[in-house]
C-alpha cells in the first residue's frame, strides 16, 4: 500500500501561488468576491501561510504553501462525531460530504487551520459553470471541505493504469498544485517507495514537518531554505 505524501521545497518556492489557484480550479471552489473575503470566509484548500517572524525588524517574512497535511495521526479525524472525515484506505484524510453535519469541530481541531466551511450555497455566474470539473463533487451548503490530495486523480490514474493493464507508476498520480508549480518546489508520490523522488527528498537533511511536536505526523514534508 502506498503512503502518499508531498514534499515542498521552500528553497525553490517563489510564493507565486500558482498552486493556490490550480487547486481552486481543479476542485470546483466557487468564485466569490470582496464581500466574502471581507468577512474572512474565502475557501482556499491550498494557501500561503504568512509567518512574519517576530524577531526583529526587517527579518524576512516566511511564506509557506499550506495544504492539508494528511496527518497520519490527524486531530480532525479523532474529533469528528459523525465519521464524516476519516483516513481512507489509501491513507488519505478524506471527507464524506453527504455525512458531514457541519459541526465544524474538525475545523477547530486542526492545528494547521486548513479546513473550510461552506457558509452558504455558492453560485457560478453563467457561463462560469462550464469550467466545473466533473470529477469533483460540488459541496452543498453547511459542510466542511479541505484539500483531498486530489484523490479523484488517484482514481483516474488507477482506472487508466488498469485499462492499460499495468501497475500504477510514479508520476501517474499528481495533484493539481504539484503539477503546476513553476519552480518545481512540489513533489508528490509514495513515501514508502524507496526509489521515488519524494521519499528521497524526505530523507534530506533539510526536511522538516510543520508542528512536528504535536505528534500529528504530517505527510507533507517541507525542505528548509539553504544548502
Amino acid at each position: 500500500m502506498a503512503r502518499w505524501g508531498m514534499v515542498i521545497d521552500l528553497d525553490r518556492c517563489t510564493a507565486c501561488q500558482a498552486c493556490v489557484v490550480a487547486c481552486k480550479v481543479e476542485n470546483n471552489i466557487p468564485p466569490t468576491g470582496a464581500d466574502v473575503a471581507g468577512r474572512g470566509r474565502s475557501i482556499s484548500w491550498m494557501r500561503l501561510a504568512r509567518n512574519v517572524s517576530e524577531h526583529g525588524e526587517g527579518a524576512a517574512p516566511q511564506w509557506i504553501p499550506l495544504p492539508c497535511m494528511h496527518c497520519e495521526n490527524p486531530p480532525c479525524v479523532k474529533v469528528c462525531p459523525a465519521t464524516a472525515t476519516m483516513i481512507d484506505k489509501e491513507g488519505l484524510v478524506a471527507q464524506v460530504y453527504p455525512r458531514c453535519i457541519g459541526c465544524r469541530y474538525c475545523t477547530t481541531a486542526c492545528p494547521y487551520t486548513v479546513r473550510y466551511f461552506n457558509w452558504k450555497k455558492y453560485d457560478w455566474p453563467f457561463p462560469m459553470e462550464q469550467s466545473l470539473n466533473p470529477d469533483v463533487s460540488i459541496r452543498p451548503k453547511g459542510v466542511v471541505e479541505k484539500c483531498t490530495f486530489c484523490h479523484h486523480r488517484l482514481q483516474l490514474a488507477k482506472d487508466r493504469a488498469r485499462a492499460e493493464s499495468r501497475l500504477l507508476a510514479e508520476g501517474d498520480y499528481v495533484p493539481a498544485c504539484v503539477q503546476t508549480c513553476p519552480s518545481g518546489a512540489m513533489v508528490f508520490g509514495d513515501l514508502d517507495d524507496r526509489r521515488s523522488e519524494v521519499s528521497r527528498l524526505a530523507e534530506s537533511p533539510r526536511a522538516f514537518r510543520l508542528m512536528e511536536e504535536l505528534g500529528t505526523k504530517p505527510k507533507v514534508i517541507y525542505l528548509s531554505k539553504g544548502e
Binding site: R99, C100, I101, G142
Partner: peptide
C-alpha cells in the same frame, strides 16, 4: 450545525 437535518448521523 451547518446541517441540522443530518444530526442523526451522530
Amino acid at each position: 450545525l451547518g446541517r441540522p437535518d443530518r444530526v442523526l448521523n451522530v
